[in-house]
Amino acid sequence: MNTLIRQAVSVVQPRRTFLGRTGLLLSGTAIALLSGREALAAKADKAAESDLRILNTALGAELEAIAAYQVGAESGLLQKPVLDLAMTFQGHHKQHADLLAATIGKLGGRAVSAKDKYSFPVDTLKNQVDVLRFAAGLEKGAVSAYLGAIPLFGNRDLAKAAGSILGDEAMHWAVLRQAVGDVAVPGAFVS
């Protein structure tokens, strides 16, 4: 398991399971409750719920990215070595999804599943460049999505883990841009 996620889980998990264990592991929420600070406890629980929602939205997007790369791979429009590259990137998204799903489960949430069917603009994908540009657009969107999620995490270790995934998506985006002949890194900042 990714070290960052392991740290995040180790921080949050005791609160979720302390009653089922020995009762000796008291979380911030439990301490707040025991000391009569219900408002603080409720706030901590809300933050954990919010973190789970963010993780599940990220998981949904990762599952969609996996499906998108599959469409690209099966389109017959990608030639080697570009096809291998796409499969490598799809593999990264699978790793992201596995990790997010495992983390959601460990934090007491229920991970979303892949949809039965995804809708991609396949009628606009006529050649390899079209497929790569479409993938680049999704990767750019993923960078923005993680960037927009990071400030919202109550658990800073989850924010750090999201930053790690963001870095990977940004590399995908740059490589895909390079592959279609665009400037690989269009600016000093992402947004």
Binding site: T57, G60, A61, G141, S144, G148, S191
Partner: peptide
């Protein structure tokens, strides 16, 4: 709007 592309599209439901 390109920032929204991981989860949204004009014509199709996504995430």
């Amino acid at each position: 709007y390109e920032r929204c592309a991981a989860c949204h599209a004009l014509e199709a439901d996504r995430t």
